[in-house]
């Protein structure tokens, strides 16, 4: 039987934050992949196709802002959600301008988080 679960890529450099997303996504029954930098995320996307990407912004080497630009330039059309501790209104605006499909600030509000996932995983 082939795996019909949706594939989600988490791009996050902080281990504890990845662990949290992992738990939060458990009830969604998705297949998870983890990239710790923007560059790693690009590499992953070139190898597999994902149904959703959860992207941190402040990361080593390459930020989420840069990563989304490059992913879009490579033709990756997967919805990308920004999940970041940059929590000012300007930060949300900026993520929308750069083409993120949704934005959630840290600390992550579980109810909001699930509502956003509903849009992309159902």
């Amino acid at each position: 039987m082939t795996d019909i679960r949706k594939k989600v890529l988490i791009v996050e450099d902080e281990e504890s934050n990845y662990a949290l997303l992992q738990v939060l996504l458990r009830s969604w029954n998705v297949e998870l992949a983890w990239a710790q930098t923007g560059a790693e995320a690009i590499l992953r996307c070139q190898q597999h196709s994902f149904d959703l990407i959860l992207m941190d912004i402040k990361m080593p080497e390459m930020s989420g802002y840069e990563a989304i630009k490059r992913l879009r330039a490579l033709g990756v059309e997967t919805p990308i959600i920004a999940q970041t501790a940059y929590a000012r209104i300007e930060d949300e605006e900026k993520s929308r301008e750069l083409g993120f499909d949704a934005y959630i600030s840290k600390p992550i509000n579980r109810i909001k988080f699930n509502k956003i996932l509903e849009q992309f995983l159902t």
């Binding site: 902080e14 504890s16 934050n17 662990a19 949290l20 402040k58 970041t84 501790a85 940059y86 929590a87 000012r88 600030s105 840290k106 600390p107 992550i108």
Partner: peptide, 11 residues
């Protein structure tokens, strides 16, 4: 703000 929110996310 970013540095405070990052560990807060885990907590």
């Amino acid at each position: 703000s970013h540095e405070i929110r990052t560990p807060m996310n885990g907590i």
